[in-house]
Amino acid sequence: MIHQLYPQVFHNYRYELNKDMHIAAAHFIPHEKAGKCANMHGHIYTVNITVAGDELDDAGFLVNFQELKKLIHGKLDHSLMNEHQDWFNDKNSNDFPTSEVIARKIYETVQAYLDTLPNKPTCLQVFVRETPTSYVVYRPKAGER
């Protein structure tokens, strides 16, 4: 069971939903400055997705937890992240599978899904913990949605 406190996002929405998941995956950072991380290695990532909105859907959900898990855990768990070429590549540092980029790609995927929902919830932040002592929070800048 995950017991984690996450940075709070202050907002004016009625509802806030948080989905936690663990993702066991390998990656390597294709750059000489990555040091040991240039070698393939694995993590058990802790991911938290924060979604907010004012309206529930016809089933009474802001967003179905299962859909978020399918989108992210279903794609990344037990995989080599570098092989997800729709998210990552070894040419552009903005697309290397670093924790920062992983958090942004999760955000982009979740928000694209949320944009298809009639109640139009929004992803406020994505938290990705790579190790017990290192984590990243991705939040879109105001007006970027």
Results as ranks from 00 to 15, higher is better:
8 Q>M: 10
21 M>A: 02
48 N>S: 15
111 Q>Y: 11
5 L>G: 08
52 A>R: 05
9 V>K: 08
80 L>I: 12
81 M>L: 13
1 M>R: 12
13 Y>S: 15
44 I>A: 08
59 A>M: 13
26 A>W: 07
114 L>P: 02
26 A>P: 11
133 T>D: 11
131 T>C: 10
98 T>E: 09
2 I>K: 15
1 M>Q: 10
72 I>P: 11
125 Q>C: 03
90 D>M: 10
49 I>S: 00
8 Q>N: 13
13 Y>F: 13
142 A>L: 08
128 V>S: 02
142 A>C: 05
120 K>E: 01
118 P>I: 03
78 H>D: 05
131 T>A: 14
62 L>H: 03
118 P>V: 05
139 R>C: 13
116 T>V: 00
111 Q>R: 15
95 D>R: 11
113 Y>G: 08
4 Q>V: 09
105 K>W: 04
122 T>H: 12
35 G>E: 03
49 I>H: 03
11 H>D: 10
81 M>N: 06
108 E>Y: 00
100 E>Q: 11
76 L>I: 06
24 A>T: 15
116 T>P: 07
136 V>I: 06
140 P>G: 05
30 P>R: 07
52 A>D: 04
53 G>N: 15
28 F>S: 01
144 E>H: 11
80 L>S: 04
18 N>M: 11
4 Q>R: 12
97 P>T: 00
26 A>F: 08
46 T>E: 02
24 A>F: 15
137 V>A: 09
90 D>H: 14
24 A>M: 14
80 L>T: 07
75 K>N: 12
84 H>E: 13
24 A>I: 15
23 I>L: 11
78 H>W: 04
78 H>V: 05
47 V>G: 01
8 Q>A: 15
22 H>Q: 12
94 N>K: 11
122 T>L: 09
79 S>R: 08
81 M>T: 14
3 H>T: 15
